[in-house]
Design a protein around this nucleic acid. Structure first.
Lengths: 206, 206
DNA sequence: TGCTTAAATTTACATCGTAAGTTTCAAGGG
DNA sequence: CCCTTGAAACTTACGATGTAAATTTAAGCA
């Protein structure tokens, strides 16, 4: 019987290729991420990656899964680092903005690359949802503590959308340094005040 | 002297090519927008567009300029259709979401396509700023009317970011039909309440 | 009518993703 | 031990792309 790749061999190669792809993307732009260049970086022939990935789109999906998982990890770490829904919201928001600004390429890979046929990559969907869960979940905590009132998921999505927008704006140079953090905090406090439970007509909101 | 293209000849060709590009993008996806296909659609040879555009990226920029201008026009029309800062905010927000949902391809061309070297296309930057101006400008009106308090640009950007996020979420199927409109309205009222001048906070109905 | 020259076409090339064919070489079986 | 086996890696090749360069076409003036 011939030599057979172990599962860790496959996983190792996939990891190394994803690293190379992200480095190429960050250092030399999206056009530099070619199958031939990736293969050259790993010291293999241009067709070898096809033993480990379906096609180039599959590589992009794997790189994005990796980025989403690191992102989710950062958010979860921030969430678990403090207690109390109010502090958690602030910590997660700050961690979100920090990640986006410190890893702009990973952030763009996650949210800026419009990958068609996402449904073909359940791992990617799962990794994305893992990140989303932390972004929207702490609103439920805030609601349980009576800090906000209304539809938890909707408020969470609003919050997420706004923070994402702020990060995108700062990454594209449309805000002064620190602008995203400031917007994020301002939005947070405004929304919190706006979504405060009120004695009479709170049910009407959102 | 040989035949020379008039300015309207050039403008006409550019317009026709942009229309073909947007139609191809909408009907057959981004990969179908090739120089050869564009030329075939216009009934010319594959190199002819190079007399009217610098390169393919220049075509994308022109298509985006066109989309941004139509978008800005829709926002401005909504803004001017009612009076009073409060109603204007709602009208612009609704027009924004409507445009995004009714012209998803134009919307994605504007905000989803990550075009490097934007600085090479001042018309594109200008068209983008024209749209942005309406999105952030009405906050200044609201402030002048004493409806909100704080940094107008910052509140405007927050608002923009949140609405954009809502549209993106609905376009990607993560919200139920009408979800973006609902989020937009909810966010609007929450932000307005949160950014109210504080002494009037208790009595203000939204 | 020819001449001039911008506009349009044709041809050609480097590079891309990847299908197909070929070679290499480690792990059993004799 | 050497031979066989077949997965893994490599080489080659193809069609498509963006576009540079060479070539052809045709409109306005002499």
């Amino acid at each position: 019987m011939p030599r057979v790749l172990s599962e860790t061999d496959v996983a190792d190669f996939r990891d190394r290729l994803c690293e190379a792809a992200e480095r190429l993307f960050a250092e030399r732009g999206p056009d530099a991420v070619t199958m031939r260049q990736l293969a050259a970086d790993l010291g293999v022939s241009p067709m070898t990656p096809y033993r480990y990935f379906e096609d180039k789109d599959d590589i992009l999906a794997a790189v994005r899964v990796s980025a989403f998982n690191r992102f989710a990890e950062a958010l979860e770490k921030a969430r678990d680092s403090v207690s109390g829904a109010r502090a958690r919201g602030a910590a997660v928001g700050e961690a979100y903005v920090n990640f986006g600004l410190e890893h702009p390429h990973a952030y763009k890979l996650m949210f800026d690359s419009n990958q068609p046929h996402i449904e073909k990559y359940p791992e990617l969907v799962a990794a994305g949802q893992r990140a989303q869960k932390t972004m929207t979940g702490y609103i439920e905590d805030a609601m349980a503590e009576g800090l906000v009132d209304g539809d938890a998921l909707q408020i969470g999505l609003m919050n997420w959308a706004a923070i994402h927008g702020a990060v995108i704006l700062e990454l594209s140079g449309m805000l002064p340094p620190g602008g995203a953090h400031r917007i994020c905090r301002g939005f947070d406090s405004a929304l919190m005040r706006g979504a405060l439970p009120r004695d009479r007509d709170a049910h009407r909101q959102v």
